[in-house]
Every structure is written in C-alpha cells, then in structure tokens.
Design a protein around this nucleic acid. Structure first.
Lengths: 363, 363
DNA sequence: CTGAAAGCGCTTACAG
DNA sequence: CTGAAAGCGCTTACAG
C-alpha cells in the first residue's frame, strides 16, 4: 500500500555536534560590559547609555546573538506568543489565519498554531495552552467547552473568540455582523423580485450560522412573508451536495440563500449539472476568493477580514497588557457583493473600484 | 473609511490580577516530596517509584499543574516546538499546513507558524527562528536565501524543505515527483490524441514548477514531437487570467498543461466565458479540493500529501534527535486523477473507490 | 548609567 | 529511588 519512495541519501561532510547559540554572557565578555548591560541593550526603555548600547549591539552582531525569549519569559511572565486554534482549514479560514499570523508577527508576537481536527484528533486541551505559557489564545471559527474556558481563566490565559462568538458571555469576541448579513440577503432576494425561497444552513451548531439564519428569517417575518424552506448541509462542498439534491427534488425555489459560500457553490453545481437549472438565484456568505471565480460568480455577503483583524489585535493587546480589561463583543458589518449568481434588484446597486455592492433602501 | 463597529462593553465582575500557574514547588509541597521528584514524575524514563509518582500526579491534578516547557527547554536544549514557514496560504498550502500541524501535535510538538507575505512583509529572518529556539524549521512551498540557510546552520537549527526543494544540496527535502508528474501529463495528453499543445507555467522561479516543466518537455523531446508553446502566469487565479487570454488570442491549442490547478481552473474559465471554447483539454497539478468541483472537474496530477507528510515527520524527528543525520531528498510519486476537463485516452484508465486514475503503458 | 546578585521554573549530575 | 544543589539564559530590584 505505501508508496515506493525514491530516496537519495548523502553523508554530511563532517559536521560536529549541534552548535550552541551565543548567550548574553558571551556578548558581555566580547563587549567588555556586564551581562546586565547586554540585557538592557535589548530591552525597550531600559536605562543604558548610547555608547555601551552601541558596544553591546556590535558584539551581539558579531556573535549572531539574539535574546532567548523563552528564558526572558521566565522572568517577565510574558512569552510573546499567542496561540491560535481552529478546527479545520476550510475555504475561509486560511485567509484569516494568514492575515492574523502576519499581523501578529509585525507586532512582535510568535504564533502557536493549534489545529483541532475534531474527528479523530482529540480536542484541544488546557495542557496544550499552558505548556507554552502563551500570552493569549485566539479561538477562531470554533467553539470550546465551557470547562476549557474556565480552565483558561484559572490559568490566567485570556481567550478571544474570532469569527464566531460563544455561549460564555465573559469571553470577548469579534465577528462579522451575521444577523445583518442574513437580513440584508433576504432583502436583496426580495428586491430581486423572487417569491419562492429556500435556504441551506449548516450542520454545525455554530453561532455565526445561527445568526445568519435568524437575520434571514427576521426579514420575512417583519414583512409578513411566508417562512422559507430550510435544508441542512454539512460544512464542506461535498457535504452540501446531498441536501441541495434533496431540495431540488422536493421543489423548485427561485431563490436560495446558502449560509456559506461553499454551500452556495455546491448548490449552483447541483442545479446546473444534475437538474439543468440555470435561471436560479443563489447567494452565499463570506466572500471567499473562490466565490469570485467566473464559473460561480457568487453574490455574497462579505466578511470584512481586515477590520475584524484590527479589532482582534486591539482587544488582544489590551487584554495582554491588562488582564482586567473589560470584556468586549465587536460586530463588524460587511456588505453584499453583487455578482452574477442572483437576479439583480432594480435599485440599490453601487459600483466602485472593487466591484458592485448592494445596499437596501429600507435598512 | 473605517467601518462603524457596534461595540458592546461590559465591566468584568471584579477579577483580580492574573493568576499564577502552579509550579513544581507547589506540587512538591502538596505531595510532600522534593521538587526533583515532581520533575521526575513528568519526565519519561526517569527513575521514580510508582508510589511517589502517583502522589505527585495527584497533587499536580489538584493544582492544575503542567510543566513549563519553556523553563524545561533552558536545561534540555529542546523546546519541542517546530517552526513552519510559508509564503502564502493559497489553495494548496492550507491542506499541508493543517495536516502537518495535526501530526506534529500528535507527536507532542508545538507548531510556530511564521507567515512571510513576501510583498510588503519582510522576509522571515534568522531572528524569527532563533528567538524561540525552535527545534527545527519546515520551509514549505517557498525558498530561502542561502544566507539565511547558513545562519540557521550556524545557529544549529535544522531546516527541512517541504513541497519544494532548494538550490542548497545540504538541506533535506520532501517533494512530490514533479518531473514524473509533468512527464506523465504529457503522455496522458498525447494518448488522448492531441497534437497541438500549450502549457502555462508559473511566474515564480520555484523548483516544483521547473521540474514539472522539465518533465513535460522531456516527453515531447524523447518522442521527437514539437515543443509545446509556453505561457507564464502569476500564481493566483487572478494572475492566470491574462496569460490564458493571451494564449487564446494567439492560437487555439487543443490541449493545455497548467502547472498548477488554480492556473488550470482560470484557463478553463477564460476558455468558456471569454472565448466560448468547450472542446478543449486542460489539465492541472496538485489535486487541490476545488479541482474536484463539478464546474471544473479538473484532471490533475495528485500531490500525495499524506505520504509526503510522513516522510517529513520522519526526517524531522531523525534530525532533531541526531544533528548529524544524513541529508535526505525524498521524492514521492503521485498519479493522474482523471476527471472531465480533458479527453480520455483509449487505454490505461483504472477505476477504484477514489475515482479514476491513468497510468501510462509506456512509463 | 552600571554591575553584582537574586530569582524565574525547570532538569540533571551527584551523593546517599 | 530520593533530595540538595548547581545551572540553563535571562530580567530586575538594589546599591553605587
């Protein structure tokens, strides 16, 4: 079963045992100063004369010295590492992860990635986060047991929810405005002149989905319209095929709200390739990169990753600096990105450099 | 410009300053043993009686104690952290990253993610990797300056290339068999009866692309066939639109080898939506999840992520254990996954539970 | 502004 | 098998 690997080996030309990195003492000796001085040269705001500072920096350069953050953390109590945990790298998470990792690195933080598969893999545990004494944990796109949340509190590790929120009100969160997104998608579809609606939710009991659904249904209720039919997908493309199929076998809605872009794209494919339907409006949620690909050209509600990240980083640094910082729940509004997968309303479409968007006249 | 956030704040119910995690001394006191005993209870193979071990573990449990890996690393010289650096989370990398992160976590390692945007972001530096004294660095999908490689060697941090290889022969690597992939794609297309070929390479001077190209061209040369026309794309979907357009304006090849799946999908879209071409064979490389989506149904050469990961983890642990381990270059063969984006050869197609594959009769 | 010294939370010879 | 002690590479009062 296992593939035959072509392996090419080569003996190293004699390499000695692993070299040891230079320490502050090495630098101190070379620079002719005390080890304290070396430390001061590398800590922001420490009292040190420009002259000795320069001497130290030169010696450090020569020895390739770099302060050992791990040793430093023993004293300062800060590791300058923040953990990020997510359950899966779907179509949306990678953007978030790379954006966060980049931002955090800019800010001088290391990023400890803790993937939790959720299937065979054990859930992330308190040991995972305490072992490395991370300064804070960003929980992206997934929930945590409240037991875990409590353990983190006891261990003094601040948690921050990103993308989704949680049932624990004492934990800060940053999310897109999922309710507003669902609501305005309903408005968009109704403005497009549709009368027969279905929506496909996700299997996961995930708060963003619930909010999207609540918002979507709220529009119909508010306007005295009949409640759209509901179908339930799994969160992957493949997991969306069956429910889409079931939907089209049961009825022919003219407008479909998919609670995620991937569900929307799968629905589009089932409609076209299995049922030969082309005059159909399908809209998604999140505006993942693939939504813009011409084969789908999916109209969708954008999750403003950039703004959400800024809020996240703000809260993060605040809570690291001050453990007693107030809990904050930030909701960042996005907007409807209009493409070709759904019929256009007669009014409300605006065009700018990034493409077309739609804003309801009745907010 | 900045969005108006809806912010909800809440004063915490009086929380005291950040709690301090329990230390080995706390546990020792509670268990009535020495601090050394606590340490031994937590280190594999240390000499300790089952009885004291149990006492220690109980006390630890009660105090929520967890050994501080950072403090431990000062003594052992191992942090149990491996770094992963990649330039961008494109359509392929996320799979790799999550698979690696999962595997490494299983093996008891933390994963420090170091994204390097490459655009505005500064390249990853030696400081990034030495600061946290990581045990090893996996360089995925991107190259490094040889200066950086040397600095890592001097700092005693083993490097391992994943997905791509490098010009530095002294650094181990694990890659798909890109040459074989390119070669067999040529064979596949020729077996499909095509006579007019183009291929779209990637802008990046990345070794996997070069190998794919070399393999592809080698087939034509070996069989005395005319050399296919070459076009060059950027690595994203958007960056592939213009070269595909240019290609179809200049000629109408009947078969196109895209050096990555994303280039292939963009080519398919340009052909269909801009030029109305439908009877065209396009094949890609990597077998990313989106290649299977019905709108593209892209025939492609699979990069066997699982097998590549196993090799990577093997090499990694070997080199962490023994810095003088020999350099290894592992090449893992994949296979052609047959879908609907390209004409089928008359023979050589096999079907198994995962779908159809093709194997050349003339290898 | 500077250095000597204590101490962060561990592991590991060393002696018993 | 066990404990006292040294030491990993740092930061930070403390005294000068």
């Amino acid at each position: 079963m296992s593939p035959v690997w072509r392996v090419e080996e080569k003996r190293m030309n004699e390499r000695h045992s692993r070299p040891k990195p230079a320490t502050a003492i090495d630098v101190a000796n070379l620079a002719g100063v005390s080890q304290s001085a070396v430390s001061r040269a590398f800590t922001e705001g420490a009292s040190i004369s420009p002259k000795t500072r320069r001497k130290v920096l030169e010696a450090a350069q020569a020895l390739n010295y770099n302060v050992n953050f791990l040793a430093r953390s023993l004293i300062t109590g800060k590791t300058n590492i923040v953990g990020i945990t997510m359950r899966r790298l779907n179509q949306f998470n990678p953007q978030v992860l790379s954006a966060l990792a980049l931002r955090l690195r800019e800010a001088g933080y290391g990023v400890l990635l803790m993937m939790a598969d959720g299937e065979e893999q054990p859930e992330i545990t308190i040991d995972d986060v305490t072992r490395y004494r991370i300064d804070a944990l960003i929980v992206a796109s997934t929930d945590l047991s409240s037991k875990f949340a409590n353990q983190c509190r006891d261990a003094g590790i601040p948690i921050l929810f990103f993308i989704r929120t949680t049932s624990e009100p004492e934990i800060s969160s940053v999310t897109a405005d999922n309710f507003h997104g669902g609501y305005s998608m309903a408005a968009f579809l109704v403005a497009g002149g549709h009368e027969d609606f279905s929506y496909i939710s996700s299997h996961e009991i995930a708060s963003p989905n619930q909010e999207r659904e609540r918002g979507f249904l709220a529009y119909f209720e508010k306007h005295g319209l009949p409640c759209p039919r509901k179908y339930v997908a799994h969160s992957t493309f493949e997991g969306s095929i069956a429910p889409a199929r079931e939907m089209f076998r049961e009825s022919r809605p003219s407008a479909i709200f998919a609670l995620s872009d991937v569900i929307g794209m799968a629905t589009l494919d089932v409609a076209r390739f299995e049922f030969g339907l082309s005059d159909l409006s399908v809209v998604g949620f999140s505006n993942i990169p693939a939504a813009a690909w011409p084969s789908y050209s999916l109209t969708t509600y954008s999750q403003p990753v950039e703004a959400m990240m800024n809020a996240t980083v703000d809260i993060l640094f605040e809570v690291i600096r001050n453990p007693n910082a107030p809990v904050r729940h930030v909701t960042v509004p996005g907007k409807i990105i209009v493409r070709n997968s759904a019929r256009l309303p007669a009014t409300g479409i605006e065009e700018d450099e990034h493409g077309r968007t739609w804003t309801p006249s009745d907010p």
